[in-house]
Design a protein around this nucleic acid. Structure first.
Lengths: 124, 124
DNA sequence: CTATATACTTTGCGATACAAAGTATCGGGA
DNA sequence: TCCCGATACTTTGTATCGCAAAGTATATAG
């Protein structure tokens, strides 16, 4: 029996790299723009400071979730970011877990207290 | 104009106290059991170690989201936890934001025609 | 040729998640 | 009676991390 089976609410699929307010916004933004987004765009879309954005992008890049292209436009630095294939894949996996969580909670909110025994927590 | 208006992906509603893997599991568990759950039950349901559970419960209690009742059963300590009213409300608020995030991302994922067969990530 | 704006990176720090160790009690054996 | 392991937590230590402030560099305007 796997650990998850006995711990239905552990949500192990919630990858720490992804499960972060700022980075969730970044990934969602990038998901909506497969062609890529510029540093300044992401900054605005996600309401991040320069420093935070830089840091989060570095984390996402090191994890292989986004591809960060640093180039120059004229003499100015211009950074473009896109989701990698695995990044997209892993984000979708994460979202599936998140969706399950929302469903679990919504279901719990909807109906009243089920007795413990029914869930098989106390043996059965 | 509020900050959120210009930063549609900032997801400011993602309360740090709630937005945490372990605590999400705890809150969902407690949502499903309004009558309360014992320390040992939560530990099992969420797959947490004693130390982590203790710590997370303390955080949730300090934030006023859960009510932790420490009593004795015989001479053994026995802790029971329940969601407070505000805890329930704040968790539901959080879930609403989370739902929006999942929808945003799903929509973004859907707009792009994926040649790969991985369709219909969400919903039915 | 200062001043301000854009485009980032680096640094410093306070907070925190997690694990390991600690405290205390109970229920068996030997 | 004296261990020994299990239950029920709490405390401590550490390593990480998010965030803000400061730093670097170039471009443009007055």
């Amino acid at each position: 029996m796997s650990k998850t089976d006995s711990a239905p609410f552990s949500y192990e699929g919630l990858d720490r790299v992804i499960h972060e307010k700022a980075r969730l916004g970044l990934l969602t933004s990038l998901m909506a723009h497969p062609k890529g987004l510029a540093f300044a765009d992401l900054k605005q879309l996600c309401g991040l400071t320069d420093g935070n954005l830089s840091r989060h992008l570095a984390v996402l890049q090191e994890a292989g979730l986004v591809d960060v292209t640093k180039g120059y436009e004229g003499n100015r630095p211009h950074t473009t970011c896109r989701l990698t294939k695995t990044g997209r894949r892993r984000f979708l996996d994460y979202l599936a877990v998140l969706e399950r969580l929302v469903r679990d909670a919504a279901k719990a909110a909807g109906r009243e207290a089920p007795p413990l025994g029914r869930l098989g927590i106390l043996s059965t």
